[in-house]
């Protein structure tokens, strides 16, 4: 009898805000990007996405059986983890690697920490880090989108230039190192916005990600604080470098639209489990992530920094939460 009554402190809001609804919204928000991925990379993309989602759900179910816990498949969090992992993989990734990544995300990064809500790190990003450490070659082989004409510029170590293509950020990195003209990177800006470039599955089309992000904001599944903080911090960081030396550093817009910046701002950094709870904390978290991404992109060895930036900020999230404790209404209670 009691289990049917929800006991909670005021305010009493009748709207049902369940994990399932939030995750369902995130999935709907990711649909435009999924459509773009399948449009640009065709069957490859569809297979990778399908594999990741299926493997994540299977891992979640097996863990539930082993732990003798209620089946947690229908909170849809495994689907979201699978989608985000798939979106952060290169299209040509072998499917067995996608399965290993999915299992790692769910079993090691989520279930071993105690399941949804108890994981410290974003499962998809931690799994991607593991895949990058394990299969570095596979994780940096970029496929040319099916819609690209062969006249586009290519960078390649070998003569198989038709198979692989450098991402806009790889161009930007080459420009920083003085091995390519910065104008070539900036020339990719338009294609980067539409998604007509090489890159991870879900990060190519900025337009699709923006549509999904706006949907989440309208549905109030996420608040604007983290995305705004990420984009402002990264934009300011990139703009400062650009105005100091435009011959070396590429357009800040390329950095905002290129790589995983938008998917990070709207879908990864806003993960309610691994981001801070308070508004102030969200600003700090987002700004830290944005600044770290740009620091890695502009001064680091890697062309892209979203994964490590998110993992580092995940690690400091408990500290941020501690520093930004909410003061209860009426002021701090007096401790005797």
């Amino acid at each position: 009898m009691l289990s049917k009554i929800t006991v909670s402190p005021a305010p009493h809001i009748s709207q049902k805000l369940s994990t399932q609804r939030v995750m369902g919204d995130v999935i709907i928000g990711l649909l435009p990007a999924m459509a773009a991925a399948i449009w640009f990379f065709r069957l490859q993309a569809a297979l990778v996405i399908l594999t990741c989602v299926t493997a994540c759900m299977a891992s979640e179910w097996i863990c539930g059986v082993i732990r003798k816990k209620e089946n947690s498949l229908w909170d849809l969090s495994a689907v979201v983890a699978g989608l985000i992992l798939a979106f952060s993989l290169p299209p040509a990734i072998p499917l067995w690697a996608a399965v290993i990544g999915s299992a790692f995300a769910i079993v090691i990064c989520k279930m071993l920490f105690g399941g949804l809500g108890a994981n410290i790190f974003n499962p998809a990003m931690a799994a991607r880090a593991f895949l990058t450490a394990s299969f570095g070659m596979l994780m940096t082989t970029w496929t040319v989108p099916a819609t690209v004409d062969s006249a586009m510029p290519h960078i390649s170590a070998t003569n198989t230039a038709t198979v692989t293509q450098a991402t806009p950020l790889a161009w930007a990195k080459s420009a920083i190192k003085g091995k390519a003209e910065v104008t070539e990177a900036n020339g990719l800006l338009k294609n980067t916005f539409w998604g007509n470039v090489g890159g991870c599955l879900g990060e190519t089309s900025s337009l699709a990600l923006l549509i999904g992000g706006v949907y989440l904001l309208i549905r109030r599944t996420i608040t604007f604080h983290i995305p705004a903080a990420v984009l402002i911090a990264a934009g300011v960081f990139a703009a400062v470098f650009y105005f100091v030396n435009p011959d070396k550093y590429s357009d800040p817009l390329l950095h905002l639209f290129g790589g995983g910046m938008l998917i990070c701002a709207f879908f990864i950094a806003t993960d309610p489990v691994t981001a801070p709870l308070s508004i102030k904390g969200m600003w700090i978290f987002g700004a830290g992530a944005g600044a770290l991404i740009m620091l890695i992109r502009l001064a680091g060895e890697y062309p892209e920094g979203v994964m490590y930036a998110i993992l580092i900020m995940n690690a400091v999230t408990p500290l941020i939460d501690r520093a930004c404790k909410l003061v209860p209404a009426g002021g701090k209670p007096h401790v005797q």
Partner: peptide
């Protein structure tokens, strides 16, 4: 078989040891 390079790195040691301890 494609080698999992990460298992040869420190991260592999921590994960494997953790799983064995469990």
């Amino acid at each position: 078989f494609t080698p999992w390079a990460a298992m040869g790195m420190p991260v592999g040691a921590f994960i494997t040891l953790g799983l064995i301890l469990g």
